[in-house]
Amino acid sequence: MQRVNMIMAESPGLITICLLGYLLSAECTVFLDHENANKILNRPKRYNSGKLEEFVQGNLERECMEEKCSFEEAREVFENTERTTEFWKQYVDGDQCESNPCLNGGSCKDDINSYECWCPFGFEGKNCELDVTCNIKNGRCEQFCKNSADNKVVCSCTEGYRLAENQKSCEPAVPFPCGRVSVSQTSKLTRAETVFPDVDYVNSTEAETILDNITQSTQSFNDFTRVVGGEDAKPGQFPWQVVLNGKVDAFCGGSIVNEKWIVTAAHCVETGVKITVVAGEHNIEETEHTEQKRNVIRIIPHHNYNAAINKYNHDIALLELDEPLVLNSYVTPICIADKEYTNIFLKFGSGYVSGWGRVFHKGRSALVLQYLRVPLVDRATCLRSTKFTIYNNMFCAGFHEGGRDSCQGDSGGPHVTEVEGTSFLTGIISWGEECAMKGKYGIYTKVSRYVNWIKEKTKLT
């Protein structure tokens, strides 16, 4: 034993070699072989497995989906700052455009905790909710729209109204504003409101030439003092309507412009014939205590009207009353817009006519005020429907199939267009061939041609 100890002390290297040989010859039971080890760690190889990531292109799944990435790591994937920024906006807080917040056709661009709407022409605001041009839906104005110097929408209202708090709607500024039905039992019968379409306001006024200088022999019209197929109006439903009495009662109609003036057809009036105007009328054979009678003290036909040349060209006249009318729910003026808007309103496509005229061709006159909704007829169809001249200051309205029309005794009465609950004068009943005849239409004086003249002559002093 002493000898062994001496050998170990003198030859430590020998001992180490012996131990190493023993270990190498022993069977290893701690580690699995290569094949079995792979069965336990069965993990798919990654895209760049075996390579240094710093030297390969980034992978979106590896960089940002398996674990949260930084902007720089995302930049490695896209290799483009702009594309990385677009991805980053949604990656950080989701897609803010998912709810489609942009209105009126706006395009949404996502941002971090926010979004941006790219608005089409005519709109602005956070969600493109603000109209900035009158060309689109009248700028959301209830009545009139004008573009300011910086191309912003400025709404306005006709006389007797003021802008509401929203700067879009119009509200009454006087007790009985024009064009409004205020009798409670008839307010439910107000005709369907007309909503502004998209309009090209630059070209809204037709490029028409008034044929002022045409000389033409007097034409022989049949029954051209021209509501057939209409309905009984309720008291106060058309408070701007008046009836004219002269040699015979209810020979023509008219509309209240203001307390002192009536507008009617020029062919209705004769110099030297006494005319009485009755406002607030409903049943011409009954006294309903809503009527107001006034005498006409002055007749002003349009300066281009000449019955000797043509009885229905420039067929418009103004009547001055001896005493002002007292405005109330049964006696209310009709609204008159400017030339541009009167023309736009007419193009809405349908209007209402009213009167006490004959209820059928050569038949009896109506006792109760009649009204009828009539569609506008395109000019080409209008011209083809008659052998008589249709001037540019006239328009056609009615039904091709016949059966409904204005008729004798309705002449001078109103053709009105309702705009968001307020009625505007767009025409004056003038003439036609018979009444409600198939293929024939009622012919009306186009008020847009005469609004400046009306307003100039009827100013209240």
Rank of each mutant, 00 (worst) to 15 (best):
Val4Asn: 11
Val4Ser: 12
Ser11Pro: 10
Pro12Glu: 07
Leu14Ser: 04
Ile15Ala: 06
Ile15Val: 08
Thr16His: 09
Ile17Glu: 02
Cys18Val: 12
Leu19Tyr: 06
Leu20Tyr: 05
Leu20Trp: 09
Ser25Asp: 05
Glu27Cys: 05
Leu32Met: 14
Asp33Ser: 11
His34Tyr: 12
Glu35Cys: 04
Asn36Arg: 10
Ile40Glu: 02
Leu41Ile: 14
Asn48Arg: 09
Ser49Phe: 07
Gly50His: 15
Lys51Leu: 05
Glu53Asn: 09
Glu53Gly: 13
Gln57Leu: 05
Leu60Met: 15
Glu67Cys: 04
Cys69His: 03
Ser70Gln: 15
Glu72Arg: 15
Glu73Gln: 13
Glu76Asp: 15
Val77Arg: 14
Glu79Leu: 04
Arg83Cys: 05
Thr84Cys: 04
Phe87Glu: 15
Trp88Glu: 15
Trp88Leu: 15
Gln90Gly: 13
Cys97Gly: 01
Cys97Pro: 01
Glu98Met: 07
Asn100Leu: 06
Pro101Arg: 02
Pro101Met: 02
Cys102Tyr: 00
Leu103Ile: 10
Gly105Ser: 05
Gly105Cys: 02
Cys108Tyr: 02
Trp118Cys: 14
Pro120Ala: 11
Phe123Ile: 04
Glu129Gln: 06
Glu129Asp: 05
Asp131Gly: 13
Thr133Met: 05
Asn135Tyr: 04
Ile136Cys: 03
Lys137Val: 06
Lys137Glu: 08
Asn138Glu: 03
Cys141His: 00
Cys141Lys: 00
Glu142Met: 09
Glu142Ser: 11
Glu142Lys: 06
Phe144Val: 02
Lys146Gln: 13
Asn147Arg: 06
Ser148Cys: 05
Asp150Thr: 10
Asn151Cys: 04
Ser156Glu: 10
Ser156Arg: 07
Cys157Asp: 00
Gly160Ala: 02
Arg162Asp: 07
Arg162Leu: 08
Ala164Trp: 03
Glu165Asp: 11
Glu165Ile: 09
Lys168Gln: 10
Ser169Trp: 06
Cys170Glu: 00
Pro172Trp: 03
Ala173Lys: 10
Ala173Cys: 05
Ala173Gly: 07
Val174Asp: 07
Val174Leu: 07
Gly179Tyr: 01
Arg180His: 10
Gln185Thr: 14
Thr186Pro: 10
Ser187Gln: 10
Lys188Pro: 13
Leu189Cys: 06
Arg191Thr: 09
Thr194Glu: 12
Pro197Asn: 05
Pro197His: 14
Pro197Trp: 08
Tyr201Trp: 10
Tyr201Asp: 10
Ala207Gly: 13
Thr209Ile: 11
Asp212Trp: 10
Ile214Ser: 11
Gln216Phe: 09
Ser220Thr: 09
Asn222Gln: 10
Asn222Leu: 08
Phe224Ser: 12
Arg226His: 14
Val227Ala: 12
Val227Ser: 12
Ala233Asn: 07
Gly236Val: 05
Phe238Glu: 00
Val242Arg: 00
Asn245Glu: 06
Gly246Asp: 06
Gly246Ile: 04
Asp249Val: 07
Ala250Ile: 07
Cys252Asn: 02
Gly254Pro: 01
Gly254Phe: 01
Ser255Ile: 08
Ser255Asp: 01
Ile256Thr: 01
Ile256Met: 03
Trp261Gln: 00
Ile262Ser: 00
Ala265Leu: 02
Ala266Pro: 01
Val269Lys: 02
Glu270Asp: 13
Ile275Ala: 03
Thr276Glu: 11
His282Gln: 08
His282Glu: 03
Glu285Gln: 13
Glu285Arg: 12
His289Gln: 06
Thr290Ala: 05
Lys293Pro: 04
Ile299Cys: 05
His303Ala: 08
Asn306Asp: 09
Ala308Thr: 10
Ile309Tyr: 06
Ile309Ser: 07
Tyr312Ile: 10
His314Pro: 02
Asp315Gln: 02
Ala317Ser: 04
Leu318Met: 03
Leu321Gly: 00
Asp322Glu: 06
Leu325Phe: 11
Val326Tyr: 12
Asn328Glu: 02
Asn328Phe: 01
Thr332Met: 07
Thr332Val: 14
Pro333Arg: 03
Ile334Asp: 00
Cys335Tyr: 00
Ala337Trp: 00
Lys339Cys: 06
Tyr341Glu: 05
Tyr341Val: 04
Phe345Leu: 07
Lys347Ala: 12
Lys347Glu: 08
Lys347Gln: 14
Gly351Ser: 06
Tyr352Trp: 06
Val353Trp: 03
Ser354Gln: 14
Ser354Asn: 10
Gly357Val: 14
Arg358Ile: 06
His361Tyr: 13
Arg364Ala: 14
Ala366Ser: 05
Arg373Asp: 03
Arg373Ser: 12
Val374Met: 11
Pro375Tyr: 13
Leu376Asp: 01
Leu376Glu: 02
Val377Arg: 05
Val377Asn: 02
Ala380Ser: 09
Ser385Lys: 12
Asn393Asp: 09
Ala397Pro: 01
Gly402Asn: 11
Gly403Lys: 14
Asp405Gln: 14
Gln408Ile: 14
Ser411His: 13
Gly412Trp: 08
Gly413Lys: 06
His415Phe: 13
Val416Asp: 00
Val416Trp: 15
Val419Arg: 05
Glu420Thr: 09
Gly421Trp: 02
Ser423Pro: 02
Gly427Tyr: 01
Ile428Asp: 01
Ile429Arg: 14
Ser430Lys: 02
Cys435Thr: 04
Ala436Gln: 10
Ala436Leu: 09
Met437Phe: 14
Ile443Glu: 02
Val447Leu: 08
Ser448Ala: 14
Arg449His: 15
Arg449Glu: 13
Val451Tyr: 05
Trp453Gly: 00
Trp453Lys: 00
Trp453Arg: 00
Lys455Trp: 05
Glu456Ala: 12
Thr458Arg: 02
Lys459Pro: 04
Leu460Met: 15
Leu460Arg: 15
Thr461Pro: 14
